[in-house]
Amino acid sequence: MQTDSLDRRILAVLQRRGRISNADLSEEVNLSPSACHRRVQRLEEAGFIKNYVALLDARKVGLPATVFVEITLQGQTDDILDAFERAVRLIPNVLECHLMAGTADFILKVVAEDTDDFARIHRQHLARLPGVAQMQSSFALRTVFRSTALPV
């Protein structure tokens, strides 16, 4: 599906304010409510809009510590990669897992209550991941900014 500048404006607004009413969205992008609704439905059906979510404040839910974990595997065969990827999906505190090109095979973004909680997560989950040869963890001291909005 091809998108035009109007579709991209709709996507930009929805990324910032996912709960905006169709009436307010149509006004913001200068389109009739029915045409705006049809475009949003088309963007959803085409997979441009994957989901609508609530973004939580990690501090308020008791998970203020962010830790980035670099993982090097024992090898990169399909079996080792598949086993690791299946297992890491099951760890609730892992928010993101990226297969990398570079010095580490994977980088994980992990949230925890504090250093003691991360030690528990490490001991009970991360250290038991299959195929891991080496791990290095880095604690974020402060989040300078965070965004989920893609530049459309």
Rank of each mutant, 00 (worst) to 15 (best):
V40M: 08
R128N: 08
T77V: 09
Q2D: 15
G62W: 06
I71G: 00
A112T: 07
S147K: 04
D116C: 14
A12V: 05
R59L: 08
Y52K: 11
R8Y: 03
I49C: 10
L63W: 08
A140G: 09
T115L: 15
L43A: 01
S147F: 15
A65T: 11
L108C: 04
L129M: 07
V94C: 07
A149S: 13
A35E: 13
G75F: 03
K109C: 08
Y52M: 04
D79I: 13
Q76R: 10
I107N: 03
K60V: 03
E44F: 05
A140V: 10
V67I: 15
A101E: 01
R9P: 06
T3M: 12
T143R: 11
L126E: 02
F68M: 15
A101P: 00
N51K: 13
L141V: 09
I71P: 00
L31W: 00
G62H: 02
F84N: 00
H122L: 09
L129N: 00
G75D: 12
F106I: 12
L108T: 03
A46W: 00
S138K: 12
A119L: 10
Q136T: 10
I10H: 00
R8A: 05
D57V: 00
A23C: 08
L141M: 12
I80K: 02
A140Y: 00
N51H: 15
E45H: 11
T143H: 04
N30I: 05
L141A: 14
N93Y: 02
V152P: 05
G75W: 07
T143W: 01
F145S: 12
R8K: 14
E45G: 08
A127H: 04
V144I: 13
V53T: 12
C36L: 06
A149Y: 11
R120V: 15
R146T: 13
F106D: 00
R142A: 07
T143P: 03
E28I: 13
V132C: 06
R16T: 13
S137D: 01
D116T: 14
T115E: 15
L63R: 14
V40F: 05
D114H: 06
L25D: 02
F48W: 14
Q2P: 04
A127R: 11
D78P: 15
A65Q: 15
Y52W: 07
I20S: 07
P151V: 13
S26K: 02
S21V: 06
R142I: 05
E96Y: 11
N22K: 09
R42N: 09
T66F: 07
V67F: 00
S21Q: 03
A46E: 07
T66M: 11
P151W: 15
I10K: 05
R8E: 13
E70N: 10
A83S: 14
L73A: 01
G62Y: 04
P92R: 04
H98P: 01
H122E: 10
S5R: 09
I91F: 02
A65D: 07
T143N: 09
C36Y: 04
A133M: 06
L73G: 03
F139D: 14
A83W: 06
L6E: 12
D24M: 10
A101Y: 13
Q74R: 13
K60S: 15
A127G: 11
I49R: 07
L90H: 07
S137R: 04
L95D: 12
